[in-house]
Write a protein that binds this DNA or RNA. Structure first.
Length: 798
RNA sequence: GCCGGGGUGGCGGAACAGGUAGACGCUACGGACUUAAAAUCCGUUGGGCGCAAGCCCGUGCGGGUUCGAUUCCCGCCUCCGGCACCA
């Protein structure tokens, strides 16, 4: 009997697939399509660890499964290759990013090939390829022309370590998402994308997506829609007006003071002479605090400005304070404070002994302890007394609006996207600055604006990109007037290339458009998108925004790029995420060497529910390896002397088809693997040819190399992936005999084997000789019987 | 604080729609094969009592609904992830 030799088998079939182009996709096929996409990786220097494999295995299983079901499957791979590590290598080691990127890609590709995934490498894309980023730049130009890309000087988040500006989405808890350095605020002239114009659409169409609840919630929270009103307060002894934003106009009578953000432009103008020094000191103190420090303390601080505002509903004079609990970049940077009904205002009022007037009470019950932040019924609110919060919100705003003092307003937490980076290794922003014409977009036919070679990659840190020193490149002529002009030296953020890459795979070599209309319409949107949850608000939000814009300019015909999203769980080692610095990385190369790619693939699936984090165990892969050998040995034994199919073997075979299909469909891949193991335990020493063939096809998505070999051993022509996924015969799924549990007062006392359609009396007859049942029934009276055919018979006794 | 996901044997985990809790795998133990070991194969493996038949307990904790609850309801504890002064 031949011994299972994973090395020989896996090599043989990888070569076969490559030579025969088994995974070549016919992009113009007439078959039904299935687009299964992995989030493409940044090709880092450290290579793939087993955690990366999990997602790739999952998507590959699905792709192969769909192919066996007769779909033309697009399952491509590429590289999101712009990024800081390559640039940092360039700075430290002088290796050109193009070189290190190419090396890293080669290594990643080797590892990905070892997984045995069915990628069609003809469709490979690379975001740093000028033929690719030409279209990234093209999209930017379209946005520019549609007023969605604009340049503005404003305080932005700046990472002093990465030496570049960051988008809000890249700041986590006041720290740089990439390197953990506390971010600073810097006033820089930045390119921005008007993503906020799409806020409502991005929020609304979340409802249409088959995505994990968690991601939908995270995006919803990030967009942060709130409905309220802007209300204009006039000042006492001044012509100035202050606009505040509130979601609780019903509490307006309880507004006993007002707070401006320290950075608010009016602060300077309204501060009284006597308060001036104190106010200035406070502003300075606020500015010196980092975002982290400012967030760390929730204790309320602030200073009175000496000015007063007039509450528009009752003419009451209220003091104006400044405090850092009011943020300059949300709403209008100013609030009306209602301490009786807002926790923060309450704390502040307590701290500085300001007036607290309750104006809302619960519709039922007592006047509660303050602050009472829920809706209720109005009190102390003049003519509005007795209205509910909902009624009052509407009425008060309407009445003020009639006097031009209020406007219903919707606000979002999401901000426009800070889109420029002061770094080298990114797509140049295709804009030219002309002395006479100002900002001029590069002509589309002049794209791509290529990244020039530089001597020194070191960012200046002053908000200038290293590109600024390449005078040959910077100095150009104006596309409009032909006069002298300078190129924009900022580059795009890493997210730019990944916002639309799924389109390019459908037509990666197209020189005339980012992809042809036909291909886009045939293949996209993506049917299944597999990747980690870390991109929940970054990549996935940006890509949705791009897609909506591309729809608006007629490139695509849908709003949403990814119909279904699956987030695979992390693989941990010693309870922690794998990382080089922790030294807990499990290297797949050694495991492939020792157990083979099929074993590793199958263990990745068996390790636990695919969406849940799982702890890596070396002994686990042993079990799967043993299983594969048992399959191998079953084939060896059976083929030496094939038995005929029996009723039982057919029943087991069809049940396996049904179970495996159902478990793949529902993403319960861990239990799909155990279904195979159970089958093997039940099927005995040898099985018939039909059973072996079915088993081979069912195994193929998980262990493709093994399946090809078994398929050939059965005398079939390769490839097994040209076979047809079997269908279960429903008649064979019904058991003739079933086990029914006998319960007394809900406690199981034994089981009986009866025919599927056994009547209650048959079961009662069959249970007669079970001692435990007899014991439990002794001296008791049966008062009720519950019979669930095929499941239980429960006797209720007294 | 808010949102999301968890808590089941020694371990990873299973249980479709309220119906035999612990499938499947790992570990451990016992046995077969072997001069021996590895590999392989067979058996046992939630805890307790018992020679056995069998009995009791058991899905984070406390209640409830039900003939019957890991599953449904109420109130907690705890772990992980996300957000966090957004007016």
């Amino acid at each position: 009997m031949e011994v299972y030799n994973h090395k020989a088998i896996e090599k043989k079939w990888r070569d076969y697939w490559e030579t025969n182009q088994t995974y070549k996709v016919d992009l113009d096929s007439d078959k039904p399509k299935f687009y299964c996409l992995d989030m493409f990786p940044y090709p880092s220097g450290s290579g793939l660890h087993v955690g990366h494999w999990r997602g790739y295995t999952l998507s590959d299983v699905w792709s192969r499964y769909k192919r066996l079901q007769g779909y033309e499957v697009l399952h491509p791979m590429g590289w999101d290759a712009f990024g800081l590590p390559a640039e940092n290598d360039a700075i430290q080691k002088g290796i050109h990013p193009t070189v290190s990127t190419a090396n890293n890609i080669a290594n990643f590709k080797r590892q990905l090939k070892e997984i045995g995934a069915m990628y069609d490498w003809e469709l490979e894309i690379d975001t740093t390829d000028p033929e690719y980023y030409k279209w990234t730049q093209w999209i930017f130009l379209q946005m520019y022309k549609h007023g969605l890309a604009y340049r503005q000087e404003m305080p932005i988040n700046f990472c002093p370590s990465c030496q570049t500006g960051l988008a809000n989405e890249e700041v986590v808890g006041g720290e740089c998402d990439r390197c953990g350095t506390p971010v600073e605020k810097r006033n820089l002239k930045q390119w921005m994308l008007r993503i906020t114009k799409y806020a409502d659409r991005l929020l609304e169409s979340l409802k249409t997506l088959d995505w994990p609840e968690k991601v939908l919630k995270m995006q919803e929270a990030w967009i942060g829609r709130s409905e309220g009103a802007e209300i204009i307060f006039s000042l006492d002894n001044s012509e100035q007006k202050i606009t505040v934003y509130t979601t609780r106009p019903d509490t307006l009578f309880g507004a006993t003071y007002m707070v401006l953000a320290p950075e608010h432009p009016l602060v300077e103008k309204i501060t009284s002479a006597s308060q001036k020094s104190e106010v200035e000191a406070y502003i300075q103190k606020t500015e010196s605090k980092s975002a982290v420090e400012r967030m760390a303390s929730k204790e309320k601080t602030g200073v009175f400005t000496g000015a007063y505002a007039i509450n528009p509903v009752n003419g009451k004079k209220i003091p104006i304070w400044i405090s850092d609990y009011v943020l300059i970049d949300y709403g209008s940077g100013a609030i009306m404070a209602v301490p009786a009904h807002d926790e923060r205002d309450y704390e502040f009022a307590q701290e500085f002994d300001l007036e607290i007037i309750p104006v809302i009470q619960p519709e039922l019950g007592e006047v509660p302890e303050l602050p009472f932040v829920l809706d209720g019924k109005l009190i102390n609110s003049g003519v509005y007394d007795g209205l509910t919060s909902a009624e009052a919100k509407e009425k008060i705003v309407a009445d003020l609006k009639a006097k031009n003092l209020a406007e219903p307003t919707v606000k979002y937490k999401m901000r426009d996207w800070v889109f420029s980076r002061q770094r080298y290794w990114g797509e140049p922003i295709p804009i030219v600055h002309c002395e006479t014409c100002g900002e001029v977009p590069v002509n589309e036919e002049d794209l791509p604006v290529r990244l020039p070679d530089v001597e020194n990659y070191q960012p200046s840190g002053s908000g200038e990109s290293p590109l600024a020193t390449i005078t040959d490149w910077v100095n150009t002529t104006c596309p409009k007037c032909g006069g002298p002009a300078k190129r924009e030296t900022n580059t795009m953020p890493q997210w730019a290339g990944s916002c639309w890459y799924f389109l390019r795979y459908t037509d990666p070599k197209n020189n005339n458009e980012l992809a042809s209309k036909e291909r886009i319409n045939k293949w996209t949107p993506v049917d299944l998108y597999v990747g980690g949850v870390e991109h929940a608000v970054l990549h996935l939000l940006y890509a949705r925004f791009y897609t909506m814009f591309l729809k608006d300019i007629g490139v695509v015909e849908y709003d949403e790029p990814f119909t279904r999203l699956f987030n695979q769980g992390m693989i941990t080692k010693d309870g922690a995420k794998m990382s080089k610095s922790k030294g807990n990385v499990v290297n797949p190369d050694e495991l492939v060497e020792h157990y083979g790619a099929d074993s590793l693939r199958m263990y990745q699936l068996f390790i636990g529910p695919p969406e849940i984090d799982a702890e890596w165990m070396d002994s686990g892969i042993e079990g799967v390896y043993r299983f594969i050998q048992r399959v191998w040995n079953l084939f060896q034994r059976s083929l030496a002397d094939l038995p005929e199919p029996t009723k039982e073997s057919e029943r087991l075979r069809h049940r396996l088809i049904a179970t495996v299909t159902e478990r793949i469909e529902s993403f319960k891949l861990n239990t799909a693997v155990s279904a195979f193991m159970e089958y093997l335990n039940q099927v005995g020493n040898k099985v018939d040819r039909q059973s072996l063939e079915t088993l081979t096809i069912l195994l193929a998505p998980m262990t493709p190399h093994l399946a090809e070999e078994l398929w050939q051993m059965l005398g079939n022509q390769p490839s097994v992936f040209d076979a047809q996924w079997p269908e279960a015969d429903p008649d064979l799924l019904i058991d003739e005999l079933v086990t029914v549990a006998i319960q007394v007062n809900g406690k199981t006392r034994g089981t009986v084997e009866v025919a599927v359609d056994a009547a209650e009396d048959d079961v009662k007859a069959a249970m007669a000789d079970i001692t435990a049942v007899k014991n439990a029934l002794e001296d008791k009276q049966i008062v009720k019987t519950i019979y669930v055919p095929g499941k239980i018979l429960n006797l209720v006794v007294r």
